[in-house]
Design a protein around this nucleic acid. Structure first.
Lengths: 251, 251
DNA sequence: GAGCATAGGTGTACGATGTACACTTCGTCA
DNA sequence: TGACGAAGTGTACATCGTACACCTATGCTC
């Protein structure tokens, strides 16, 4: 009953603070997320916030968990073949959430205190993969490589200075024109990339899907090998018990 | 002649400032990297730094480029099969550099102003792949997916609260013991992961190599398809000219 | 309804940070 | 030698997170 959904009185609540913080960060970026600015948005004095969050760090923890809650959890697959669309959809959904809240990239997986939505999300992922027949270790591998890819891609995406494929062409062109000739001679391959971008553009979505499909294909190939072996859930692990570390060099 | 390599006089230089900043950030983390602390380390008043760097942002740009210079560039492959060890070694080297400078994770690819070492690094990567026969588009794909993976993995690695496989077991065990029973019932699969970690440990290096090999294997499989097609360097692009976006759902 | 405990909002204040601006100092070369 | 300019100094200010003491009004008990 002590919720903020009570009539129109000017009471704050933890949820209201978190929601306003999310909106502020979406609008102004992480640098604009200031306790003072947040208080101003809420029509309240800065110190009032501290009645609802312990400090700014805990505030950010809460914001990050809201973003996690926006990521659609993969459904546990009854059919062994359904892990792939489920994982693909989750990866896309995660990227979309990161795209809606760019400030969260680099914070999502860096936070030390995972919230309930984060836990639920990973629980669903584990469950989906285990039910699809993946061994325990393989589940960890798939989660690790997929999450790493999505985070890393979102991170790269943030740093590129254009927002759309069309814009990428224009910007690439003018960057290219601004280069002195000597630089062009030093970095021929980079110049090639930039000039290609200038004519053809760069499509984030297509690039993301290419990499995602590449990884999912590779997992599908390894699935038989990763299904029953190495599962050893009830058994005691052998000493060491690490995944065989394949050498990098040989193909 | 106006270098800092002059005799033992107490003159600063841009390089000295950057080196001290790197060392400070390595020791104290990014939160400890303060203009005042940096000045203290150099035995100088804070404002003296501004004679050598424009502001803190430019300082960080310089630091990031030093980290890039520590990443071993892949050698251009004469043999078509050498792209794989070269890319693998570069990925490992990049991860090692990020491990040496944890503060740099999340800054490396987020910085808007790439430095010369960054450009040289990517130039070498492009060159290595192009010489190995990859088409222009394929080169972009490989670079994108590999960099995303390495960044993302380093990001995840930072957030996990243990440093070694042995320690991971202990910490996982005590986290497990600290959970109320109801939580265990809500997240059975997560509990499984934690308890497995408690007995078997978690080996970052092995996990990283597993994902890296998975990706490199997948690229190797696609190499024939990605070799000559779609190269179209001299030709005009077709309208649109985006990579065909494969659907996610079907395997 | 009266009275009051207390959750929630306020005001002031402090130390830390990045850096603008005006100054002093000192090495270098005419 | 003398002065010019690059390098280092000192002071100052706006902005940040947040500690602490203080009010206030909401809702519970009788």
């Amino acid at each position: 009953m002590s919720d903020e959904s009570r009539a129109g009185r000017r009471r704050l609540s933890r949820n209201a603070v978190l929601a306003a913080a999310l909106s502020l960060a979406d609008r102004e970026g992480s640098a604009g997320l200031t306790m003072r600015a947040l208080a101003r948005d809420l029509g309240v004095v800065p110190m009032a916030l501290y009645k609802h969050v312990a400090d700014k760090d805990e505030l950010i923890d809460g914001m990050v968990d809201i973003v996690w809650s926006e990521v659609e959890a993969p459904v546990a697959a009854a059919d062994q073949s359904l892990w792939r669309p489920a994982m693909g959809a989750r990866a896309v959904s995660l990227r979309q959430a990161l795209g809606r809240h760019p400030w969260a990239v680099g914070l999502m997986e860096t936070r030390m205190h995972p919230g309930p939505a984060n836990l639920a999300q990973h629980e669903a992922m584990m469950g989906c993969l285990r039910r699809a027949g993946f061994s325990f270790r393989a589940t960890v591998h798939v989660t690790s490589v997929l999450d790493a890819y999505v985070y890393g891609f979102a991170l790269q995406e943030m740093s590129l200075p254009f927002d759309s494929a069309e814009e990428s062409g224009q910007i690439a062109q003018q960057k290219l024109d601004a280069q002195p000739a000597e630089l062009a001679a030093m970095f021929p391959y980079l110049i090639e990339v930039v000039s290609e971008l200038a004519t053809a553009g760069y499509d984030y979505d297509a690039e993301f899907n290419t990499g995602l499909n590449l990884i999912l294909d590779a997992v599908e190939v390894l699935r038989p090998e990763w299904s029953r072996t190495n599962s050893r859930s009830p058994r005691r692990p052998a000493s060491g018990a690490h995944v065989q570390q394949r050498p990098i060099a040989p193909s």
